[in-house]
Measured scan of single mutants.
Amino acid sequence: AIERGSKVKILRKESYWYGDVGTVASIDKSGIIYPVIVRFNKVNYNGFSGSAGGLNTNNFAEHELEVV
């Protein structure tokens, strides 16, 4: 089962992080479509409006993740 702290591989082909491994930061139990927040070591794009980097978290559905 996917739980907080799990290392997961991203299976969503259109994702910037496809094939990468991230760490589960949290799981939303409220029934939303993409409840699993995954944190990565790298950012997906340069930040804007003065922020240092881009996003390094993204929401995924459990079926888009594979525990490694």
Rank of each mutant, 00 (worst) to 15 (best):
I2G: 02
I2S: 02
E3K: 13
E3W: 10
E3P: 06
E3L: 13
R4H: 07
R4K: 12
R4F: 09
R4Q: 11
R4N: 07
R4V: 14
G5F: 05
G5M: 03
S6C: 14
S6M: 14
S6E: 03
S6W: 13
K7C: 15
K7G: 02
K7P: 04
K7N: 06
K7E: 05
V8C: 13
V8N: 01
K9F: 05
K9L: 10
K9C: 14
K9P: 02
K9I: 09
K9G: 02
I10P: 01
I10T: 02
I10Y: 02
L11N: 02
L11T: 03
L11P: 01
R12D: 03
R12Y: 02
R12S: 03
E14I: 07
E14Q: 10
E14G: 12
E14D: 10
E14F: 08
S15T: 02
S15G: 02
S15E: 01
S15M: 02
S15L: 02
S15A: 03
S15C: 11
Y16F: 14
Y16N: 04
Y16K: 05
Y16T: 04
Y16M: 07
W17T: 00
W17F: 06
W17C: 04
Y18M: 02
Y18W: 04
G19R: 05
G19C: 13
G19E: 05
G19K: 05
D20F: 14
D20Y: 13
D20R: 14
D20I: 13
V21M: 05
V21Q: 03
V21R: 03
V21C: 09
G22I: 08
G22L: 05
G22C: 07
T23H: 05
T23E: 11
T23V: 12
T23L: 06
T23S: 03
V24W: 04
V24E: 01
A25M: 15
S26V: 06
S26I: 06
S26Q: 09
S26C: 15
S26N: 09
S26H: 13
I27C: 05
I27Q: 01
I27M: 04
I27E: 02
D28L: 11
D28R: 06
D28C: 12
K29N: 11
K29H: 11
K29R: 12
K29A: 08
K29M: 11
K29G: 09
S30W: 05
S30T: 11
S30H: 06
G31K: 09
G31A: 11
I32N: 10
I32Q: 12
I33M: 12
I33S: 13
I33E: 13
Y34Q: 06
Y34A: 07
Y34P: 05
P35L: 14
P35Q: 13
V36M: 04
V36D: 00
V36Q: 00
V36W: 04
I37K: 13
I37T: 14
I37Q: 11
V38W: 00
V38I: 04
R39Q: 10
R39P: 00
R39L: 10
R39K: 11
R39A: 08
F40G: 01
F40P: 00
F40E: 00
N41K: 14
N41L: 12
N41G: 09
K42H: 07
K42R: 12
K42L: 07
V43S: 08
V43P: 15
N44F: 15
N46V: 07
N46M: 10
N46R: 03
N46F: 09
N46Y: 07
S49C: 15
G50N: 09
G50Q: 09
G50M: 07
G50Y: 07
G50D: 13
S51V: 11
S51F: 09
S51K: 06
S51W: 07
A52M: 12
A52I: 11
A52E: 13
G53L: 10
G53I: 11
G54E: 09
G54A: 09
G54T: 08
L55E: 13
L55R: 08
L55Q: 12
N56T: 12
N56V: 10
T57M: 13
T57I: 08
T57A: 07
T57F: 13
T57G: 07
N58A: 15
N58G: 15
F60L: 02
A61I: 02
A61V: 03
A61Y: 06
A61N: 05
E62H: 10
E62L: 14
E62T: 11
E62I: 14
H63P: 04
H63S: 10
H63Y: 11
H63L: 05
H63R: 06
E64G: 01
E64K: 02
E64D: 03
E64T: 02
L65F: 03
L65A: 00
L65S: 01
L65D: 02
E66W: 08
E66R: 07
E66H: 05
E66P: 01
V67Y: 04
V67R: 05
V67L: 12
V68T: 05
V68G: 01
V68W: 08
V68M: 10
V68Y: 06
V68K: 03
